[in-house]
Simulated assay, not measured.
Amino acid sequence: MRERRAFQNARRAREFEAFVAGAAGRLLHAATLLTTEPADDNPRARKLLTSALAQTYASWDRLRGEDPYDRARKELALRFARAAWHQHRGYGGVLRHLGPQERLILVLRLYEGVGEEQVAALLGLPMERVHAIHARAMALVLHPPRGPAPAAPLGDAAALEEVPS
């Protein structure tokens, strides 16, 4: 009995290691997009991914035909959504102008290719709300808000005053 359990644990560990070897890079990239951290310095994204993978491993035996990547992505998204209120703004990149919910929906829809219905079900939002948030996020990414206009140098203002009318 002990040998059988040890064999099952070893098989489970090998299966999970193979899954992580294939999926961790893409999931880390998704987490990095969500946290808007630089790709080479992303401790929050790594922590988010580690937590999601740990939960996926804990439920590995109960997947029963469910796609482990889908489970890990779902766990990553839910963990980000639960912790998003701690993060008010992004750090950089094209998604920095988006709020956490907008980033989450945009990353799930565009980067991960998750359908609108699935995103709505995952986040517990009406599909119309997901559609509206996605549209607003796309608009902000394609047309980011501009900063304030630069102030005119003092020399130029003085030169304008000297011009006779």
Rank of each mutant, 00 (worst) to 15 (best):
A81F: 12
A18H: 09
P148H: 05
L154I: 03
M138G: 01
P38K: 05
L53A: 07
A132I: 10
A72N: 12
H134F: 06
V141S: 01
H97D: 09
L78P: 04
A139R: 11
Y57M: 09
A132P: 06
L108R: 14
E102P: 12
E162M: 08
A21V: 04
M127Y: 03
A135L: 00
A152H: 01
H134Q: 00
Y69A: 14
R79H: 01
L28C: 03
E102W: 11
A54S: 15
D70Y: 10
A39E: 12
G92N: 00
A21S: 07
H88R: 09
L98F: 00
P145N: 15
N42Q: 12
A121L: 14
F7A: 15
D156S: 11
A132D: 15
D156T: 07
A120P: 08
A30M: 03
F7Y: 13
A45G: 04
R109E: 07
P144Q: 14
P150Y: 08
A24T: 06
P144R: 12
V130T: 11
Q87S: 10
T32F: 10
A84K: 07
H29G: 00
E75A: 04
R4D: 14
P100E: 07
P148D: 07
A6L: 12
G25D: 10
W85G: 15
A137Q: 01
T50D: 15
L160S: 08
H29W: 04
Q8C: 10
R46L: 02
L160I: 08
A135D: 00
L27C: 00
A77V: 06
G155R: 14
E3F: 07
R136G: 09
R136M: 10
R4G: 08
R2D: 11
G115I: 05
M127L: 13
S51H: 09
V130Y: 09
L48I: 13
H29I: 05
R62M: 13
